[in-house]
């Protein structure tokens, strides 16, 4: 069996490898190359070395501001989303009536696209703020919490499903044994449930973290960066630099490469950190 698999390895993986090379690897390498050039149309790139990277950080504070805003957003959203999702998952594994209906309802927001969600929440939030005679563009704090509510609303259901699957996989005898030993429900949660769903926690925190960093559609639809560029996140700043300004295409590309390195680094560190906490089943 092993041998046959090896024999046909190349044959079966070829389509995927090809697709990976053409739609991911080549554009990626080309993109990195472009970040070292000055170009108007992608055909007439001229090598300029590291100047794009220097310009990205020194010419204005947009990129750093966006980075700071994004980090602030990511930390809070990862905590909030996972806490709420886990609590919901605990609740909905207790065999209360209508569990399935609730699960479906909570999951549904995830099926709606980010742009649509952004506009819907913009209406809701502006409708609410209208009572105070302001709107979401008034302050970056409004935009921040607006995005936070939106992200929570969208992602909690999805993460909840992953947690539910994790909780349902806990062998009942473990919990039973703990209870016989006299553990109260808090101790069961802390010493049995949480360690046992650690793989789900890894996945969920990873997904929420990368999603928060890469957030774009929701940001564009909800605030578009207003006021000024104060609520623009990294992805949006890159988009604006690349498409919004003549002569800044290379700088945008350089920002994108920096962005990639940051996200990859965080994802790697995070995986190493959480993997070590997982227990063998």
């Amino acid at each position: 069996m092993q041998k046959t698999l090896k024999k046909y390895f190349a044959f079966f993986t070829l389509p995927t490898v090809l697709a990976f090379i053409t739609v991911f690897l080549i554009p990626f390498v080309f993109g990195v190359y472009l970040s070292f050039t000055k170009f108007n149309t992608v055909n007439d790139a001229q090598w300029v070395g590291f100047s794009n990277y220097i310009r990205a950080f020194t010419e204005d504070r947009d990129f750093l501001n966006a980075l700071f805003f994004t980090v602030k957003f990511a930390i809070v959203s990862v905590v909030l989303i996972n806490v709420f999702a886990f609590m919901l998952a605990l609740l909905l594994t207790r065999k209360i009536r209508g569990t399935n209906v609730f699960r479906t309802v909570f999951f549904m927001p995830d099926l709606i696209g980010g742009i649509v969600l952004g506009y819907i929440w913009q209406l809701i939030i502006n409708g609410f703020l209208a009572a105070f005679n302001v709107d979401i563009t008034f302050s970056a704090t409004y935009g921040y919490w607006g995005l936070m509510i939106l992200m929570n609303w969208q992602l909690i259901g999805y993460m909840m499903i992953i947690y539910i699957a994790g909780i349902q996989n806990i062998p009942p005898e473990l919990i039973e044994a703990a209870e016989i030993d006299g553990a109260n429900s808090w101790q069961v949660l802390k010493s049995v449930t949480v360690p046992m769903v650690m793989p789900s926690i890894t996945i969920c925190t990873f997904l929420t973290l990368t999603n928060s960093f890469k957030l774009f559609d929701q940001n564009l639809a909800l605030t578009a960066g207003a006021p000024g560029k104060e609520s623009a996140m990294l992805a949006m700043d890159i988009f604006n630099t690349f498409y919004g300004r003549q002569g800044y295409e290379g700088v945008g590309q350089a920002k994108a490469v920096v962005f990639f390195i940051i996200v990859a680094l965080i994802a790697y560190l995070h995986l190493r950190l959480t993997r070590s906490k997982e227990v063998e089943n």
Binding site: V134, T137, F138, S139, A226, P227, G228, G244, R245, Q246
Partner: peptide, 20 residues
């Protein structure tokens, strides 16, 4: 000078209108 100039000026006008 550029679209960016105009966009930034527009954003500043909004902040002026909002009193910030």
């Amino acid at each position: 000078p550029s679209q960016t100039f105009k966009d930034n000026f527009g954003a500043a006008l909004l902040q002026y209108a909002q009193g910030t």
